[in-house]
Nucleic acid binder design. Sequence first.
DNA 1: AAGCTGACTCGCT
DNA 2: GAGCGAGCCAGCT
Length: 105
Amino acid sequence: MSELSNAISEEGPPPFARRVLDIIDRIPPGRVMTYGLIADTVDAHPRLVGRVMTHWADETQWHRVVYANGTPATCHGNNALVLLRGEGTPMHGDRVDLVHALWDG
DNA sequence: AAGCTGACTCGCT
DNA sequence: GAGCGAGCCAGCT
């Protein structure tokens, strides 16, 4: 373990990922952010945000990150939907009401 | 080295 | 309102 790739696992997410996680972590309960909005905040592309989530989602409120159309990331089940409702997030059926729930950081 | 896949979004039909 | 395709970046096989 003297390689950089190993160090990342030991120290944590790189600056870019850390930035994304920090943004998500500061999203207040009852509010959500879209991948595109976060990506724009960090000056990156939505795909990059999704990649960060795949590796470090467990370190942040991943359920507060939804798709541009308001659909929660149903990657590992619909538990995100339950969590959002549990926080009192403005919902419209199974979709988040971005008009009221979207947080612009 | 090349190609595929993936927690994405937008525009067009 | 719903479906399809294209663009996009990085990591893994």
